[in-house]
Each structure stands twice: as C-alpha cells, then as structure tokens.
Amino acid sequence: MSKQNIQLGPDGRLRHFLTIDGLSREILTDILDTAESFTGISERTVKKVPLLRGKVICNLFFETSTRTRTTFEVAAKRLSADVLNLNISTSSTAKGETLLDTLRNLEAMHVDMFVVRHADSGAAHFIARHAAPHVSVINAGDGHHAHPTQAMLDMFTIRRHKGDFAGLRVAIVGDILHSRVARSQILALNTLGTSEVRLIGPRTLLPADARSLGVHVYYDLDEGIRDVDVVIMLRLQKERMHGALLPSEHEYFQLFGLTESRLQHAKQDAIVMHPGPINRGVEIDSQVADGPRSVILQQVSFGIAIRMAVMSMAMGSQTQAAK
C-alpha cells in the first residue's frame, strides 16, 4: 500500500483534499488566494460562476451535520455543479462493506466528486484510494483525524484579520483530543509559518505526546492566552462528562470558559474564533461570542469561499489530467 500523499496528482496539484498533512505552504496559500477571488461572488446579485457546470457532486455524510453539509452544498451550487445529498446512518454493523458498496453504486451514477464525512479516522483516505481515477474526494471530517476545509476557512479568517502568519501566536482551547478541527488547524498553522501554536486544556482532553504535533502545551487558560493574537475555542461535547474525562460543565467553564475578563490576557487586538456550533456558558461566554472581537460568523461565510476554492482546484486538476 502506498504511503505517499495520495492527495496530489503527478503534476503536484491537488487531486483530493483529505488532510493538511503533507501539503506545502504554496498549496495552502493557493487555496487561500483562490478563495479570496471567490468572496466577491457571494455579494453579487447572480451568485454563480460556471466553473463546475455539468459536474455531479455528492455530499456523502455518514455523520449528521447541517452546517458543514449546507456550506458545501451552497459552494457547489455557486460553482454551477449538480448536488446530491446522501445522509447514511453508520449504525449498521457491516459499515465497511456498506461504505465500499455505497461508493460503487454512486460511481455508477457518474458522480465526479465526493464530499465525505464519516465517524472513522481515515475514511476519506479509504474512499480516495478506492474511488475511480477521475473522481475527487473532499474530506468534510473523518473521526478525530482531519477537517481540512474547516481549518482552511479558519486560516482564511486569520489572514483577513492579521495579514501574515509569521509573528502570530495562536491558542487553541478545549477538547483537542477528540477534535479533527484542531489537528487540521495545527498542521495548517505550522505549515503557514505561525510563530507559536499553543494548546490549552486539561490533560484528559489533550492527545498523548501532544508536543509531537509541534505545539506548546498549557494547562492554564490565563497563562496560555497571554499575548496571543488569535484564540480558537473548541466545542465541548456533552458526552465528555460521561467518559470520566471531565467532572462537570461547571468546573470546565470555571477553568477553560472564555470570558471578557480572561480575554484581557490576550493581545488588545486578539480575535476570537470558534468552529461552531457554540455552547454558550460551557466553553464561551455570550458576551465574548457576540462581542467585538468575535469573528465566528465571518468564519461561516468564508467557509463557502474556501469550499468553492478547494472544489474547483481539485476538479480542475482532475479535468486537466483527463485531457
């Protein structure tokens, strides 16, 4: 089995978008620049470009998600593609076989691109490895592994506000262990040359050997966000209270909840981000979430431009390869 980066075509261009891992700064910058060129479209009266006219894009969601699926759908439609939405429950025991069978069935309908969300880490890689050569795969979240379009829209948001990544200090706060978003953010931030990436959380919510991911680790929120330019809050799933990972939401908010007063430790012009949906009063105080430093809603609209960029780039390289 090949361990090389299957995301790239022989020409080094993006074929699939599965993870930030193994992608160069040039490719990430290219994605951000392409997304920048798409942001204008959303403000037009006719919000469409014909780049993917005649292409069929299938949103293959094995985990429920409304927001991510919707932004992918909007992005695909703005590129004039036809969109199929499939929500498939993973409760069946033989999900491995189902996955391959589902894939084969959809390929028979001449789907050109799969946007995949699945509860298993590595699911998007698996589908990319088994998809027909002309098909592109975009990872919309696999297990705890990766959520690269979310990370790129976060990078887009940071670049819009801060310009360059060099010199920036970015803190990611909360449940890193179970977060595919955090893993992709860390890789993207480091690839783009961020000076310092910090993880802040209790040890039960940090991965083993967290430092091997190229980050600084803090267990104290005030200390961890001192002088940072960007604070990224992660959603805390309620089920974490059951697996003996945390004592209570109350204690979590006391220790790691972001409030106005604690945000004072960050830089004056620090921005606050959150991949959503937010748990008010659990990881973030409403005053902060709705406050002047919050860019949470901008993230959502930038998400469409990023997804348009990634879809058009992956499909463009596939179309070119076919010629």
Partner: peptide, 15 residues
Amino acid sequence: HEGPVASRLGLPGIP
C-alpha cells in the same frame, strides 16, 4: 498505539 502517530492520525489510542 497511543503515541505520536495515533495522535496525528486521530486514531483512538491503546495506552
């Protein structure tokens, strides 16, 4: 194995 590779790949680890 709960270690750097599983942490990076987001695979549930066995310590």
